[in-house]
Amino acid sequence: MRRTVLSALAIACTAVLASTVPAVADTSPTPVPATEAPSTAPTQAPSDAPTEAPTEGTEPTVAPSKAPDASEVSVVPSGAPDTGVASTDSDGGGALIGGGAAAAFATAGAAFYVVRRRRATGA
């Protein structure tokens, strides 16, 4: 029993030593690249990204806060817009037409009177 136990222990110890030797041998060259490469690259990259992202997120909150201050109509005019120029000329036009018609009627009447008088007087 003891032999088997001792032999088993011996085998176990050699196995452990055999596995640790390459590990020890590896540790001497690896520390430099192994520690620098993974440690610096990942730690800086995530730290920059999150810090910039929130600053961008704050911009939209500023923009809406300014908008409500401005009125939708920036300059309000005074009074009502004067959008009706009454057609006063149309009255004058009507008077002209009426006057012209009256003059023509008077001329025609005078001509009729003259012609009739001439006929009556002897022609």
């Binding site: 817009p81 959008t83 000329d89």
Partner: peptide, 16 residues
């Protein structure tokens, strides 16, 4: 957003 304002004449004098 807001009241857009457009105006026009009801009559334009001699032009009707």
């Amino acid at each position: 957003v807001g009241p857009s304002v457009i105006v026009g004449h009801v009559t334009v004098g001699a032009y009707g």
